[in-house]
């Protein structure tokens, strides 16, 4: 009884800020500017398929890079002294205390022509760099921005693994590679899945990073342009958001299936 009452504030929050907006998106996606039901907005989907593909590509690459960078880091962190762990945690979170736009502007100043990277390269006789306004620049921005969301869940799940389980494995003759492969990796799957979800979802809908660092727009910028451009086409924007949500939902469903399967394996 008590616990249900405690849930009340969150339920209200959900209703106002999640459920109602979702229905509004749904409503605008299937109405025209006068508010009458229409399927006409579906025409925006095929036109923008290449942009969805670009966005998914960036999201997949960035998520993979985040995972490759984050997993070893999380493992090393989990084995550090407690005080070091706290400091590392802090260092990883520190950039997030700064405004997101500000951090992207800083990347522009680093990568742009005659920027900081160019002047460093210039000292060694290299350059100018050709990263600015490429897909690589977007991936750098996305990885930089969302890496903490990959590190922290993996770190949490790795540090929960009991020392005795690993020791048992070693006693039974596992070398350290097999300990990693057969014990640590399977037991950290929930962390990995959370990490992937928390990076992939915002990366797929990312905006600002793409236009500022990559010079071209991904689906996030496109939706933004429909809402904020002079034509104020909320209908198109909502339809495109809806499709993006469906794509993300499908990706998450695939991920979760993977998660459950592995969990069952461990038990």
């Amino acid at each position: 009884m008590k616990s249900k009452k405690l849930l009340f504030p969150y339920t209200v929050w959900m209703a106002i800020f999640v459920v109602i907006p979702l229905f509004m998106v749904l409503y605008y996606a299937f109405t025209d500017k006068s508010g009458a039901f229409t399927l006409e907005n579906l025409q925006y989907i095929p036109k923008h398929l290449p942009i969805y593909w670009d966005s998914l590509k960036v999201a997949l690459i960035s998520t993979a890079i985040c995972l490759i960078l984050a997993y070893p880091l999380a493992l090393i962190m989990a084995n550090m002294k407690a005080s070091m762990q706290r400091m590392m945690n802090m260092l990883i979170m520190l950039p997030m205390w700064m405004n997101f736009i500000l951090r992207i502007c800083a990347w522009v100043i680093i990568l742009r022509p005659n920027g900081i990277l160019d002047s460093i390269l210039g000292v060694f006789g290299f350059g100018p760099n050709t990263i600015y306004h490429t897909t690589t620049a977007i991936v750098i921005g996305v990885v930089y921005n969302y890496l903490p969301f990959m590190v922290l869940p993996i770190y949490t799940s790795v540090s929960k693994i009991s020392r005795s389980v690993i020791e048992a494995g070693e006693d039974l003759g596992c070398n350290s590679f097999n300990v990693l492969r057969r014990i640590i990796l399977p037991m950290s799957i929930p962390g990995i899945v959370t990490g992937i979800t928390m990076v992939f979802v915002p990366a797929a809908s990312t905006f600002v990073i793409s236009l500022r660092l990559g010079g071209y727009s991904l689906i996030g910028d496109t939706i933004d342009q429909y809402y904020k451009g002079g034509s104020f086409n909320m209908q198109a924007g909502s339809m495109l958001s809806l499709v993006l949500m469906v794509i993300i939902l499908i990706s998450m469903a695939i991920m979760n299936r993977f998660d459950n399967g592995e969990d069952a394996g461990i038990v």
């Binding site: 727009s217 451009g229 034509s231």
Partner: peptide, 20 residues
């Protein structure tokens, strides 16, 4: 006119997304 604004906006989205 609204029609022209809509057209411009749609062409614009296309231009910027292909600016690679």
């Amino acid at each position: 006119p609204d029609k022209i604004n809509d057209l411009m906006n749609e062409l614009w989205v296309d231009i910027v997304s292909k600016n690679k």
